[in-house]
């Protein structure tokens, strides 16, 4: 990779072993929730998230399950820096999301979190490569660099021959691959997937999950929301949510053995934190 994401210095500064305001050491976790609550005032207070404390270690693969209304989406929004907790703390890559203003949160989101959505959420008028490069646009990366990097990552997710295609010229699986490439383009500390296979047939879905396995093997941190048990079982552990609380955390089989060797060599790495540096600099 060509020298890590722009703003890598910031990432270093914000992710090192600093004991944050609350004195919580956040060195080893990509995401850490400490008694996080989210309360909506809908006539009477509704606790969408009711005191959740959990770590997402770097390089881990976590699935979140639960019935609708259990707080999955709220958890996703907090972890994805889209929202702030009503009380408690959320640390993403060591930075306290609750203490940030909208601007800082947006920046953290852009640099540290990669989103993969059920409905892909690609920009319909942009080509695959432009979609992937979009996060870089907002970080002020030059056009040539953006394109080069986006093309690189698309190549890696197996879409090297679809760079100039618009989303409506791609199949569902290809679109989701573009979305994954977009999520990876900033070398995020966390890849956040919300029902990534929900809109795909089982075979295509399985391919996407295989890709996730590869990404995990390369050292990425993955958090995936799903309500399909067999999908969730691909992760290391499953967090079961119920009524805004963690019902239980279930460890499932370590999937490391299923990693694909061919995908590991080209993989860039998050430069600034402690997790396994598998691929090294490919560029």
């Amino acid at each position: 990779m060509t020298g890590g994401p722009p703003g890598g210095e910031d990432a270093v500064a914000s992710s090192t072993t600093d004991a944050d305001a609350d004195g919580v050491v956040v060195d080893d976790a990509a995401v850490e929730l400490v008694d996080a609550r989210k309360t909506y005032q809908l006539g009477e207070p509704v606790h969408a998230l009711d005191g959740v404390t959990v770590d997402v270690p770097r390089g881990s693969y976590t699935a979140v399950m639960g019935p609708s209304g259990s707080g999955k989406s709220t958890l996703m929004n907090l972890v994805g820096c889209l929202d702030t907790p009503t009380s408690g703390s959320v640390f993403v890559d060591g930075a306290d999301v609750g203490a940030m203003n909208d601007r800082e949160r947006t920046r953290l989101r852009g640099e540290k979190v990669g989103f993969v959505f059920q409905t892909f959420n690609l920009m319909p008028r942009l080509t695959a490569v432009e979609n992937v490069a979009l996060p870089l646009v907002f970080r002020g990366v030059s056009k040539d660099d953006r394109h080069e990097r986006a093309a690189d990552i698309l190549e890696r997710v197996g879409l090297g021959d679809r760079l100039g295609h618009a989303p409506n010229e791609l199949s569902g699986g290809q679109r989701q691959r573009v979305a994954i490439a977009r999520a990876l383009v900033n070398d995020p500390a966390l890849l956040l997937a919300d029902e990534p296979t929900g809109n795909l047939d089982s075979e295509t879905g399985a391919n996407i999950l295989d890709l996730f396995d590869e990404l995990k093997a390369e050292g990425n941190t993955l958090v995936m929301v799903t309500h399909e048990r067999d999908v969730a079982e691909r992760a290391d552990r499953i967090i079961h949510l119920l009524d805004g609380k963690i019902e239980r955390i279930e460890a499932v089989g370590d999937l490391a053995g299923r990693q694909h060797d061919d995908a590991t060599t080209e993989r860039d790495d998050v430069p600034d934190d402690g997790h396994a540096d598998v691929g090294g600099d490919a560029a």
Binding site: G80, L82, D102, R103, T106, R107, R109, G110, E111, F115, N121, L122, M123, P124, L134, P135, F138, R139, R182, N186
Partner: peptide
């Protein structure tokens, strides 16, 4: 609206 949401999710600031 949705596109704006996507852009914000991937790091677009208000001024962008």
């Amino acid at each position: 609206t949705r596109e704006i949401g996507i852009m914000k999710a991937v790091g677009a600031q208000r001024r962008d």
